[in-house]
Structures are given as C-alpha cells and as structure tokens.
Write a protein that binds this DNA or RNA. Structure first.
Lengths: 247, 247
DNA sequence: CGCTGCATTGAAATATCTCAATCAATGTGG
DNA sequence: CCACATTGATTGAGATATTTCAATGCAGCG
C-alpha cells in the first residue's frame, strides 16, 4: 500500500484502516523524481501537497550570493509540504536528495479528508507540529553547538528518524548526504565540515564511506556530543497522538 | 475584550464575532506574571494553553552548563503554547520578558472549540504553522548570517510583528530585550553582541537606549543587512487564512 | 555609600572561513 | 585501453570572526 509508512515517523500508533484507505484514495498520482530535483519552489502558489513514498528530501531557504540554508529533512512517510495546504504558499524550496517517489495529494482532497475525518485532521496538525519541534532542535544546534556537535546532532536526528521507519540497521546511514549538504545544513563551510568529519572519525564515532554514506560506530557518543535527546520527539512512545484525540 | 488582539499578528483578517465570543468564554482566568518568570517548563505535562494578552514572552531550550538558546518570541495576541494542546508536552520553556498578562485556556475548552467550529480549528492550525515558518527564518539567520546580520534580523522581525499588532511607532522598540537576550537568541556571546550593536550604531542603523530599549534609525537598512523580507510571513496581506477556509 | 545589574572595552585564545591546491574514484570518448 | 573531465573528499596556510577572561564604567537604588 502506498501509505504503508504514512506519517509513521510521526505517529506513535497506526492509523485506522478506514483512514488509510481514504488517504490512499486521495492520492492523485505518484511521481518519481531524479536526485537533486526541485519539487516545490519557494513562493509558488500551491494546489497539491506531496507525501514521500520513498527516498529523502531536503527543505531549503535560498538566499543572496548562492547562499543556501537547509532547514529540514524529510524521510519516508513524511508529508513534505503539508503546511502548504494551509498556507497556500511556502517559504522555502523542497528538493530530492536521492531518487524519490512522491504521492501527489490535491488540496481539495485534503479538505474533504479533514472535513469528514476530524481525527485525521488532528493527526495532520500534529505532524506539522513535529516539524516545528524539529526546527527548534535545529535552532538550538546552530545557536549553541560547534561544528562538530552540529554534524553529530544532524546524524543523531537522522538515525532516530530512520530507525523509526525501519530504515536504519544501526550501522550504515543510507542517506547520501554529501559533506557539502552537511555544511549547508549546519551553517558551516564545506572545508570546515570536512575537518569536523575528520575529528569525528579520529574519535572513533563514525567512518565516512564516500559519496555521502556514513558508517555509525558509536551512536550514544554522537548523541552525547550533540546533546541530542532521542526522547519524546523522536519516538520513545511517550508522545501519543491519542493524547490529542481525547484531549 | 480580552481577545481584541487574539491572533491578530497571525491572521490577515478578523475573526467572526461569534468565534471571538466563544474564545473569550473559553478563558478560565487571566494571570499576571512578573518579568523573567517561567510559565511553562520544558517536558511538563500540560492541560492548559495560554494566550498572551499583554507583554512579551521568550521561548527557550535550556541545555548543559547553563547554555540557553532562545528559539522564539511571542508578542501580544499569540497563543504561546498552543502546540502543547496537541503534543501534551512541550519541548522548550516559556518565560515572560517583561510583565505579562496571559489568559489560561484549558485544553478541554479548546477541544470543544475545535469540534464545534471547524473554521476556528483551521485558524489555530494555521497559527502554529506560522511559528514553524518563523523558526525556519531563525535557522536561516543562525546558519547564514554573521553576528551583526543576526541581530539586525531579529530586530527586523520584531518590528514587523509589533507593527502588525499596532505596537510599533516606527522608532522605538518597546520590547526590553537585553543584550544578553540578543546573544542567547542569536547564538553569539554577550560580548560579541555588544560589539555588534556598536557596529550597528556606528552605521547609523539604530541607537541603544539602555535597559534593552532600542531606537530604530533605519529599518530598511536593517532589513537589507539581514536579508529580511517582511513579505508574506509578516503580513503584506497575501497570506490569508481565508485561503485555508475555502481550500 | 556601597550594592547590583547592565553595558562596554582590551587582549589573547580559538574557531571558522577563504583561497588554492591536490587526490581518488568514476565515467566518457576515441 | 588510454587520455581526459568530473565529482567529491582532503589538505595547507593565511585571513577573519568569535569567544573567553578579566576589568571597568555607569546608573539606579536601598
């Protein structure tokens, strides 16, 4: 089913079968994007939102003089631009990292879903709140950690999120983020990112395998170094959407 | 009316009179907090959310060794911890900056509101999406601007948001953010914040008046320096909640 | 007067950036 | 198979930005 992983990284329990069917039915088509392809451009008026069926996407703010800041990652199961449904315009671009498959869901269809299924409406709201919480982690990372810690935290977050959708085996990070991507996500230069990776390697926390792949050698140490708490945001079960249902 | 400015900085049109009445009725009590007082602590289980009737509040992540990162500001009219309604726990603390008045709204009451008034539910969702968009601006600021630019952008954002709730006269910023607050929000040291303020003064962009008050001398230049676009996020009218209603 | 909180300054230590190369792996055309 | 271009990773060295530590200034206030 297309929606097997729908919001899986964001809910702490499964959706109702009827809800899943409705969501599946709301998909107008699926689209395959080549790596490094832009799906949504900043400022565009939107009539669809896209659900990520496979692959990884980057969300980024582009600025003057080629400067680019990555503001978030989307993994399998995420609705990559759901906020575009409510905002109609989006303040940043969304691009594929590797080859991705996305499911197009027209806003009209979402409107029907949320009108007819209040519980699902809340689930969708909830999933956008998780984005905001992750953004706050990023703000913390950029404001308070040095280059090494920032990279460590990004890796920690990725491991936690991928583990949640069963895409992490505990060793190899299957997300081909290049060092230049880490640099753009962590607010540091490419050269400095490279040197920070060297430090992390020298400490025995990870190995780089080339082409953006990484082997994790000591995840707890990475979490510690980056003050990352894989706690209630990234799924130890405390955070239940059900809380929201009876709230 | 307590809700005169309810979400005013976040909506681009007024609420329906009936909606306002319901919101007003949902307020259990109002509470006055002294400056620098914590309203909500990170990790607490919540049964209420608070609407900010007057004053300014800080949202912050506290970390090891006294490190603190301010992750957002709340101004009059904002629902400071609405996401706590859906998440039940909050990933950061919320504290008053100056003396503030907040209106306590029990989550039970919010549940009724959103059940009975779907339009209002969407408005509330929308307002949390604006938080996320502002967070992304902060990520950009911390990742891509130097100390001077970061301070300039924070000031630019404040001016735009305060102007939107008619709390900015174009000259004096009435928010008593200390230089140490700017430092904690911009991810720089206090000393460096001070030096950056000196540069901004020397360029003729602003004056400091002591105790956290600032006189704006050249807002367009501040916007330019910080690549701040007071565009659709901060209220040029393009961003309509109405888009969300008929969507 | 002597606090206390905030702003300011100097000087040395670090972190990070920029520029400019080099290297290794891979793919492509002849 | 070789020559060459391309992409991503790596390194060195000097320039800049930022932090840290330690003082000082300055105002309000009991």
């Amino acid at each position: 089913m297309l929606t097997d992983l729908f919001l899986k990284g964001r809910l702490r329990h499964d959706l109702d079968p009827q809800e899943r069917e409705r969501i599946d039915a709301a998909v107008a088509e699926t689209v395959v994007l080549k790596p490094r392809t832009t799906l949504v451009r900043s400022g565009e008026w939107l009539e669809n939102s896209y659900y990520l069926v496979s692959g990884t996407m980057l969300r980024h703010i582009d600025a003057a003089r080629g400067k680019r800041q990555i503001v978030g990652l989307s993994v399998v199961g995420d609705f990559v631009d759901l906020h575009g449904y409510a905002m109609k315009r989006i303040d940043h671009g969304v691009s594929s990292l590797d080859e991705v498959t996305v499911a197009r869901v027209p806003h009209k269809a979402i409107s029907e879903l949320v009108r007819e299924m209040p519980h699902l409406a809340r689930v969708l709201w909830f999933s956008t709140l998780l984005d905001a919480a992750m953004h706050r982690e990023w703000i913390f990372r950029l404001g308070r950690l040095n280059a090494e810690g920032r990279i460590a935290q990004l890796i920690s977050e990725l491991c936690a999120r991928l583990a949640f959708v069963n895409k992490f085996d505990g060793r190899r990070l299957t997300v081909p983020l290049l060092q230049s991507d880490y640099a753009e996500a962590c607010g540091i230069s490419l050269v400095h990112a490279n040197r920070s990776f060297r430090q992390l390697k020298d400490r025995g926390l990870l190995d780089t395998l080339g082409d953006g792949y990484i082997e994790i050698r000591d995840l707890p140490a990475l979490n510690r170094l980056s003050e990352f708490k894989p706690d209630y945001l990234y799924g130890d079960g405390n955070l239940q959407v059900s809380a929201l249902v009876d709230g």
